[in-house]
Design a protein around this nucleic acid. Structure first.
Lengths: 349, 349
DNA sequence: TCTTCGCACTCGCTTGCCCGGAGTGCTAAA
DNA sequence: TTTAGCACTCCGGGCAAGCGAGTGCGAAGA
């Protein structure tokens, strides 16, 4: 039956879509009369009432209390997002505005990531956050071991996005500045251009030993590479938390507390988007799908940004379940696109 | 008259102190009867009433409305903090706890600063933030110019706290890797150990030209040093915003919005503590002293942390005006002390 | 002269109540 | 199967009353 959408006949689907749309727009539970008055449904409010009762029985709608209008459930939003809403595209002028604003950031990885988070937060009027590129997707460009004393030095690793990670090391045996230069050159010759995650400990050790160094230096080199690999892992720029206060659903201060806490624990924030790395497309999580009772009346829109073909990080918008999904998906995609472009400016070739 | 404190006779001073103390404890406007019942003042409530009326006339107390108790004004808090409250010290066990928790952070500047902010936020039950060491107070340790191509490279600057700042540069004339090494060595020889702010552009240019480089390289070197000097300037770690929600003064959501916005604009946050750099001691700003109507019912406790003798950064607690000043000063000082100690672990010698 | 007592008054907060409005479900008719 | 009509439910705003905590002031006491 081509008249069915997700097990709902055409009319039910349309009514569900209208209820969700209206609720997103107004924030008020929507009743049958209001619906028939505002939208031309071609049927009376009584019919709508019956259909709404069915939709409630099917789990798509909920009633805050008897004699109140209906409100979409998680399933209702889900159906809306998956099958009912019409996708949006950004206008040319909006794209241009995004591009212009992204130009304000200097060509530094941190700055463009932070700028994109600020921009998205402001445009979306919600909390936005952007994960920095996973360092395992970055490739190794240069290593430089700097001599400080006979038995100590600093190792500096430069990756494809110019992120220099540095680590101090101490040795058991004396070395000369020349020794360190030799090793730096060997590392550069062997690993330049390789993905960081492919610079495994074994080959690092092999190269180091080949240059005539002992286990202490092997440890130092390994620490430097691990540092580069893990350091920026859960680095996240977040922005726009104040917009959440505008939402009526945050009258209750307890919800706010959960959000603030999560914002400060970057770990949790990262977990929210972690599984989005598995699928390279945009994803939407609604209410309980976020896997936490605290976040049950929020939704999360996540869109990857890319470097070349590879998805290297995520842009997310966290807001009330009652969010304009199509619009936010468009905004996130647009910002992701521009961020992806600007990533080339920071690339170390 | 040795019986006077700040223009108040002894009894008035005591009553003011008690009112502030009680209001800080309960958050309720305090009336004359309640005061005589809870504290042994040796006089009747009527007398207290008269004294309170005088204190109100003098600007130390305020009345939210007739027939309500009194509440301290900015001036009341100010007198309390300056002259009336008894300073607190941390207990030995508390000190130990702070030290233990600070040990959890790895020996990286960012980590120990963030850890101290988290720790202070949690202990103080308020929003805490810590500025990273001003880079102009750090000294230059190493420069390394890395050859990427004939006309481009990366400049890496390592400062006394191990913060490596890096900047890409492009040149108009070809250079060899050896050229860059020569220049790196010259910079190291001339500037090692100097404070960053003393590495002025003129002497940098002189050294660069002495090595036979042109204006393009002078520009690259200058950019690298300026980057190191300004990059981390307003770097701030903040933590504990959720505690503000517990305070009854934040029932009103609008105040919260100001705070969240300020938190995201690190610039404003930095301005709040900027003038604390002039005086090396702990400082307290109360209400309107913060210079902004939005922050008028907040107070800020700021304590410097040091590297050697030099104050290099600030720990601050931002919370409701009604905060336990003595306690928070003790906590901030204790944390500052431990942070100062740990700073030596990250020093690059 | 300072302190205390007693008293009238003020004002915000809570409670209880009423009522209108919006919405529902059910039944019966089209 | 749809629609009209109707009784019922429930929320929320508005209003008045009562309570409690506190004040200010005049008069009495030390």
């Amino acid at each position: 039956m081509e008249n069915e959408v997700d097990g709902l006949d055409k009319r039910k689907a349309y009514i569900l879509a209208t209820v969700v749309y209206e609720y997103i727009a107004t924030g008020e539970p929507v009743g049958s009369q209001a619906l028939t008055q505002k939208y031309n449904l071609g049927v009376s409010s009584a019919t709508v009432r019956n259909e709404m009762a069915d939709l409630e029985a099917g789990g798509y709608l909920e009633q805050p209390h008897t004699s109140a209008g209906r409100v979409p459930s998680d399933a209702g939003y889900r159906t809306y997002v998956d099958a009912l809403m019409s996708p949006e595209e950004l206008g040319a002028d909006e794209r241009r505005r995004i591009r212009d604003e992204m130009r304000d950031a200097r060509a530094q990885l941190d700055e463009i990531v932070e700028q994109s988070s600020r921009l998205l937060g402001r445009l979306a009027g919600n909390l936005a956050f952007v994960t920095k590129p996973q360092s395992e997707t970055q490739s190794f460009r240069y290593a430089q071991l700097i001599w400080i004393g006979e038995r100590s030095g600093i190792a500096i690793i430069v990756t494809s996005f110019g992120v220099a990670s540095q680590s101090l090391f101490e040795l058991r045996n004396d070395v000369t500045p020349d020794d360190l230069t030799r090793l730096s050159n060997a590392l550069n010759a062997n690993f330049a251009g390789r993905l960081l995650r492919d610079c495994d400990e074994r080959s690092l050790a092999a190269v180091t030993k080949q240059c005539g160094f002992g286990d202490d230096m092997v440890g130092a080199v390994r620490a430097a590479f691990t540092g580069a690999r893990t350091q920026e892992q859960p680095g996240i720029a977040a922005s726009g938390a104040q917009h959440l206060l505008d939402q009526p659903e945050f009258r209750d201060v307890r919800k706010l507390r959960s959000i603030l806490r999560i914002l400060e624990e970057q770990r949790t924030l990262y977990d929210l988007v972690a599984d989005a790395f598995d699928s390279p497309a945009a994803s939407v999580k609604i209410g309980h799908e976020l896997g936490s009772e605290e976040l049950a009346d929020l939704s999360l829109v996540t869109v990857p940004y890319r470097f070349g073909e590879r998805a290297v990080g995520m842009l997310s918008i966290l807001g009330p379940r009652r969010m304009p999904y199509a619009r936010l998906l468009a905004l996130a995609s647009g910002t992701a696109e521009t961020l992806s472009e600007r990533l080339h400016d920071v690339e170390v070739r």
